[in-house]
Amino acid sequence: MIGENKGQVTEMLYPGHFACPGCGAALTVRYLTRALGEDLVVVITASCWSIIAGVPPLTALKCPILHCPFPSAGAVGGGVRRGLDVKGAHGTTVVVLAGDGGTFDIGLQALSGAAQRNENFIFVCYDNEAYMNTGMQTSSATPYGARTNTAPYPLFKEGRKKDIIQIMSAHGIPYAATATVAFPDDLEQKFRKAKEIEGFRFIHVLSPCPPGWGVESAETIQISRLAVETCFFPLYEIIDGGSMQLTYRPPVQKKLEQYLSAQRRYSGLHEQQLEKLQQDVDRHWEKLLRLSGRS
């Protein structure tokens, strides 16, 4: 049974937050704050969470939130960590929330800098695969084949999605992992693990956006689950930029088409495009199996 230990945790997310119905990013933060505990500082860069966190005098989290400009997340995270250390608050955990834009695109420089310096905090990319807060524009996390408002019909996103975990683990950081909202136990476990590790930790959380992806708000979990079951978004972790292990292996790899056809943003994909995507997924999955010694 999933969510078995749900009795012992403190909910850090208040009801009344400003996320859209069915928001994957809200769930992501709900889970990760539960796992990280109350002695926490959350740094939020420009993203959906700039809204979700609430308009003062309100706040949606049971801990301090520090908003910061779009490209600055990695650097601000390090500054907060060091500020806490200066003030003797060594036990306080710092977590930085960034969307895919604030991670893959505009935030990549600061992210890379922080990772390279092995700044002692957790960087979370809640990835909804486009600029969703501004209404679904292409980011470099948008997968090949998806339509956005900057790649409208008959266009589609041409380039591949960046392999951000590879980029980040190439920095040799102590911990890098993927997670998604349909597997909250896996997600929380990774955050609990990350909390105990010193240095830069990067967790990439696929967080479905129902309006952006063109799914019903009720389908958030379902689509997140399909992403894993089709191996489009495998769940794994990489320690010290080297040893990689899958944390969940689907009993049967479902056809990617099942995942794509459930989302309106992929509507009208040609056979060849579908094939290309399936090949990409298969190749990536085989690579992961090889790296994890499971092939």
Binding site: L13, Y14, R30, P184, A218, T220
Partner: peptide, 27 residues
């Protein structure tokens, strides 16, 4: 577990939906 809005309440092991906060996502 899956409510993004923390609108499902738990009291003495039983669950109920707090309609003050439920946004009706349907998850």
């Amino acid at each position: 577990l899956f409510c993004p809005d923390v609108a499902v309440q738990r009291e003495q092991g039983r669950y109920s939906i707090n309609l003050d906060y439920c946004k009706g996502c349907g998850i």
